[in-house]
């Protein structure tokens, strides 16, 4: 309970601020409408109107909540207007990209820790890859792959993997190098092979590092997928929902999709966290 009170207090403050901002930002439209009709508006009329505009600059919290409710429960899950439908499209590409990126990150990290040539050649490119804005490269990947006849989930997953492999790579290189000289010497006295050293020492040592990076990676995957859904007129997925919302000035739709994406990200991080706790507990690394 001690934890809940501060969280609720902060939440209440945010909602209050939000309502205030909604009144302020949406007031102009109300004034314009009133002026056109030759009327004046009282303060209470102003507040009521700014809370309930169809296309507000900033939708009020309850409008977003309504939009979310409508999107999740207001229709069949298979409907094109269902946030569950779009969320699933995004989630599936996110998970595919996350798996791809994590796999790539781990494989590269293993290569880097075992080969000096890879250490020198791969790492600079990996770092350089992350300096390119994803917004710039995503449309090109989509277009190039589409011209090769590859559309749907895979191009989005590739963009997601592009973002998520990096944290996994960096953490795993650190994790696989975590064993100190004494632990490596000990295995040497047993005349252990490189493979045994990897499976019995390096890999278990890297687990805490891996999970820390997976939490970053899964969130990055979601961002990558949404960005990949923006260009090329995608019609399915939370990113497409954001885009079509902005085409038609449907701010409530945009905000609803944003919150759906945030909830999805939170859910993914929580799931990874739970897997982390279970795994480390079974390994005896959590007291």
């Amino acid at each position: 309970m001690k934890m809940v009170a501060p969280i609720l207090a902060v939440l209440a403050a945010i909602v209050l601020l939000w309502y205030g901002a909604a009144v302020g930002l949406n007031a102009q439209w109300t004034y314009d409408q009133a002026a056109r009709a030759g009327e004046t508006v009282t303060f209470s009329e102003l507040v009521t109107d700014t809370m309930n505009q169809k296309r507000p600059v900033l939708p009020a919290p309850h409008q977003v909540a309504q939009g979310l409710w409508q999107g999740v429960f207001g229709q069949k899950f298979t409907s094109k207007r269902s946030l569950i439908f779009h969320g699933w499209i995004t989630l599936s590409a996110t998970l595919a990209g996350f798996a791809l990126g994590t796999g790539l990150g781990i494989v590269l990290a293993v290569g880097i820790t075992h080969s000096r040539a890879m250490d020198l050649s791969v790492m600079p490119w990996a770092i350089a890859s992350q300096t390119i804005p994803i917004l710039a490269i995503a449309p090109m990947v989509i277009v190039v792959l589409a011209s090769l006849g590859i559309t749907g989930l895979l191009p989005k997953a590739i963009i997601a993997a592009y973002l998520s492999f990096f944290p996994v790579l960096v953490s795993m290189v650190k994790g696989l190098r975590a064993p100190d000289n004494m632990q490596l010497d000990l295995l040497k006295t047993y005349n252990a092979s490189k493979g045994e050293t990897f499976w019995k020492l390096r890999l278990p040592s890297s687990m805490p590092y891996l999970f820390a990076s997976l939490k970053v990676g899964v969130a990055a995957s979601l961002v990558g997928t949404i960005v990949a859904e923006l260009p090329a007129g995608a019609t399915r997925g939370l990113g497409a929902r954001l885009l079509s919302g902005s085409y038609y000035g449907q701010t409530v739709q945009i905000w609803s999709a944003l919150f759906a994406a945030a909830a999805l990200a939170a859910l993914l991080v929580i799931v990874v966290g739970a897997i982390e706790r279970i795994t480390l507990k079974r390994m005896g690394m959590v007291r």
Binding site: M182, Q183, L186, T189, N191, L201, M283, G284
Partner: peptide
């Protein structure tokens, strides 16, 4: 060493925390 002729004890126990 390859014939595993000796056991070596280091200054720190160096036990694997996951075992």
């Amino acid at each position: 060493r390859k014939a595993r002729s000796y056991g070596y004890v280091f200054q720190a126990a160096g036990l694997y925390p996951w075992r």
